[in-house]
Design a protein around this nucleic acid. Structure first.
Lengths: 337, 337
DNA sequence: TAAACTCTTGCACGCGCGAGCAAGCTTGAC
DNA sequence: GTCAAGCTTGCTCGCGCGTGCAAGAGTTTA
């Protein structure tokens, strides 16, 4: 058959396949479904006919007729952090091998999350995954209150909201490990560099660091807030804050790698200091750039693949989503601290 | 009404809204459609009822009933290049404001593109956008031959395939501009660092550079191939290739920023050279990191926003997709060359 | 005031498939 | 050979909305 014939022909449906295979339409449906009650012989017959026609089930019609769409919305509000790309890669990989498709939703600024969420639910997504940073209580409430989204999952972020499912590392354990590492290395004048000040959906790294350091030395470590995870703003914050000082900290513990990289750049290029000789730096996430010899950043790697797989389990209802904030990661010691 | 009431109730349909507004279901549909034949008065009435119920049209059912899904698949095969994040951000922004949703498809390695494409078409996407690098002829043929995808768009990449739509900068003009810039700066011993060797869907930067340099000096510049856009591999390639040399090039012209950054790292940290004093470097793309003071990379910025908007026009059939590979970008001179 | 026109509204039918039940078939024990 | 039990297959009805046409309402012109 020629291209022209193909182009003018509508896509084959289950009826077409059924006609060729000599079975009913519903048998065709069963052939494409796991655990369906169908004999191997007829399934083979159906598959052969499907192959011949180039048939593939219409997921749209399937979603409409059933309660499952196998579509998951992933909402992202921060495209500046390269770590998001790593997350997207892991998530899409895990989801695709489980037959789940990804609807990527850009929340276009913090005020837009509600629209984004509504938009996603109009496509009947089975779940919405938030991998952004600026999602606060009002958004969670709106999303859950209206019941427009079946499942709300926070990825790599904790939440105390009871109807939300969080999948993340045990931030407390992780940050304690970093703190102890820094202390073991002999640093005693720390500065904690924090990101945005979100409320319910956030990380507990700052609080943990402060508390743990206090418990070890009975002094409250200094905290500096950048307001976002933008490396450029971290650069400016460090530059502005440190230039007028008489005494520098000896280590800057950062809430994530984006901040750490901005901080290192500021230390070296704005203040003319050496890392780690003058001031050490630690991060969190282990972004690709952290392994770069320029930065060689001591950081903490989250078990992203395992977390993505856990997310799939939750979406498929094979997990109730409890106890998913206890993932253990791995401290990656490098040269920066 | 309580949360419980809401949770047990199915989502409102157009029928529910119609009942409250005292109109027919089709009038409700019209109220949500632009350019529909409906009076302002009834539209207001419908909207009030919809607001009351929290109704939003079901895009799934809408897609099934019509020939448009307002869904666009974006296929990505390379999550290592941070530039992809910029593209995704621009694309999703432009598409969402045009009412198009994004299906993010990870092609999971080069052999998987066909499955990915089929997967996308099962959701009736209006178009498939390829922003990867490893899409070659066989994939384009399979996709177009089976007619399973209505529109195949290559973003930021040229193609000579007649049934494919390319949206990209004029690589020839861009690369000539870079070449002339490098020449004007006085560099005379160039090395071109190329990425993967894809066939039909690729950039013409290498060819243009070679041809243009030849036309200026009548000598063929040296070309080194990395095989991918991975900065680490660029690092290794440069390190391995330059260490055993007696004479260095005075400028390395890279096919994109990822390569340029890997090359700069190798020059500085593996070979102990200074950039640009010993060897200058240029890139292409203007990734966020290029503006970092550590790299301060001379590069070329593609008009990503305009390109994303052009893509939307193509998807919405407001453009036939011709002449979309003539976008003009901007050379961004920085310190690296 | 009637005719002609435009704008607005309602409706039959279909998009492709799934849940759940009922009928047909096979198998094995008696 | 008979009947119950299990397995396999077919089918009715519906998911929520769009297309295209026809009827109704409103407006203008002669």
């Amino acid at each position: 058959m020629t291209d022209d014939e193909l182009s003018s022909r509508p896509l084959p449906t289950a009826d077409d396949v059924a006609a060729i295979a000599g079975v009913s339409r519903w048998t065709v449906t069963r052939a494409f479904k796991n655990n369906a009650s169908i004999s191997e012989k007829t399934r083979a017959k159906v598959m052969a006919a499907a192959e011949e026609l180039g048939y593939a089930p219409d997921l749209l019609a399937s979603s409409l007729a059933s309660e499952r769409s196998n579509l998951v919305a992933v909402l992202v509000d921060d495209f500046n952090n390269p770590h998001k790309l790593v997350m997207l890669e892991r998530l899409t990989t895990a989801m695709r091998s489980a037959g789940l498709d990804t609807l990527l939703v850009n929340t276009l600024g913090s005020e837009d999350a509600q629209h984004a969420l509504r938009n996603a639910t109009q496509r009947r997504v089975d779940a919405a995954v938030l991998i952004g940073v600026n999602f606060d209580d009002s958004i969670l409430h709106a999303a859950l209150g209206a019941r427009r989204v079946k499942k709300l999952i926070l990825f790599a972020r904790a939440s105390d909201h009871p109807e939300t499912i969080s999948i993340c590392v045990d931030d407390v354990a992780a940050m304690r490990e970093i703190t102890d590492y820094v202390i073991d290395k002999g640093y005693r004048r720390p500065l904690f560099l924090a990101g945005p000040d979100t409320r319910s959906a956030h990380v507990f790294r700052k609080e943990t660091f402060v508390a743990h350091w206090q418990s070890r030395f009975d002094v409250t470590p200094e905290v500096l807030s950048v307001g976002s995870y933008d490396p450029r703003r971290a650069f400016e914050t460090i530059e502005r804050n440190l230039t007028s000082r008489r005494a520098y900290p000896d280590v800057i513990v950062c809430e994530n790698d984006a901040l750490a990289i901005g901080a290192m750049d500021a230390l070296r290029h704005a203040l003319g200091l050496r890392v780690p000789d003058d001031i050490a730096v630690t991060g969190f996430d282990d972004v690709p750039l952290a392994a770069n010899r320029v930065y060689d950043l001591t950081t903490y790697r989250q078990p992203m693949t395992a977390m993505a797989e856990a997310l799939v389990e939750v979406v498929l209802n094979r997990s109730d989503g409890s106890g998913l904030c206890q993932f253990g990661g791995r401290l990656v010691p490098r040269h920066s601290a």
